[in-house]
Design a protein around this nucleic acid. Structure first.
Lengths: 153, 153
DNA sequence: AACTCCCGCGCAATGTCCTTGCGAAGAATC
DNA sequence: GATTCTTCGCAAGGACATTGCGCGGGAGTT
């Protein structure tokens, strides 16, 4: 994959904000003909720079309105321990985000649930079953203040 | 806004996964004619159920590759205190996510930065300037394990 | 400098898609 | 049972996406 030039990054910036814009308008906004723009977009998608497009729904339209932030500590920091944990956590469909962290806990997870009963099920069937876990700390989001897809206004 | 029926939710589910699908294919997958589907989609967008579409970029294509998780405590829990903090935090473009939380800290933030120097600037100019803050605790993501837009496979 | 190669562009054409008007069928209301 | 409201499918016209093609500028070579 070649490096991204000015026009590519301009396209990416626009598509981050407006993922369903027409190719014609995208072309106009980056100063390219529709055909050239279409070809570049094709490359960006096929090379994996753009991994997908997603509709962003209002909170009330979602089935999963409960967000839990889960801090997890493992029993060790060996590469094998981390790898086994990560392989397992990827299988849980309710885990939206998982980072390996610096600081007190090893991992931080953002987990989506329908309600408290649903979270109890997820905690029991998935989180507690993760390997090498020695401490789980769940906090719940009481209210969403900001949820932006990317840096911007 | 009327309640969402089975077809609406089917459309939303598909668009969450494939935000740039053509209206024709969307119509086919929910068993509707293209015209009817286009009209329903129009309603979903204008009523705010769908708040936008966004391209999801690969990590290496992003300018902002550094993710900080910031825990913040305020000096009190009065409604006015919370409201003033929230108004201020919304102005910081680098804050991607902000939740009011249960538990030890009042707020949790997900902050995007280009590098450590950029984060230092954000911390100094934005986070430290937020009103009523008495404690800030930053952790950094060492590695991204999962980043899904919504619940699913 | 002249040549060639190669990459990316715009133009044009074709086929697909999106949208709007229209009439009909079904559900709800009176 | 008549009226009204909603939502559908169909059809048409216009917009859009995509592909082949030829051009032109830059890089590397002779």
């Amino acid at each position: 994959m070649n490096a991204l030039d000015t026009i590519d990054t301009a396209m990416l910036r626009i598509l981050q904000q407006s993922g369903r814009i027409s190719n014609a308008e995208l072309a106009e906004r980056v100063g390219l003909s529709p055909s050239a723009c279409s070809r570049r977009l094709d490359i960006l998608e096929k090379s994996g720079v753009i991994s997908g497009y997603h509709a962003h729904l209002s909170q009330k339209a979602l089935d999963y309105t409960m967000i839990a932030i889960v801090h997890i500590s493992l029993s060790g920091q060996f590469a094998k321990t981390l790898a086994e944990f990560e392989t397992a956590v990827k299988l849980c469909p309710n885990v939206l985000v998982c980072y390996l962290m610096s600081g007190e806990y090893d991992y931080i997870l953002r987990v989506a649930a329908k309600d408290l009963a649903d979270y109890e099920r997820i905690h029991r069937d998935w989180l507690s079953a993760l390997p090498h876990v020695v401490k789980i700390n769940s906090s719940f989001a009481l209210r969403e203040i900001i949820d932006r897809p990317n840096v911007g206004v």
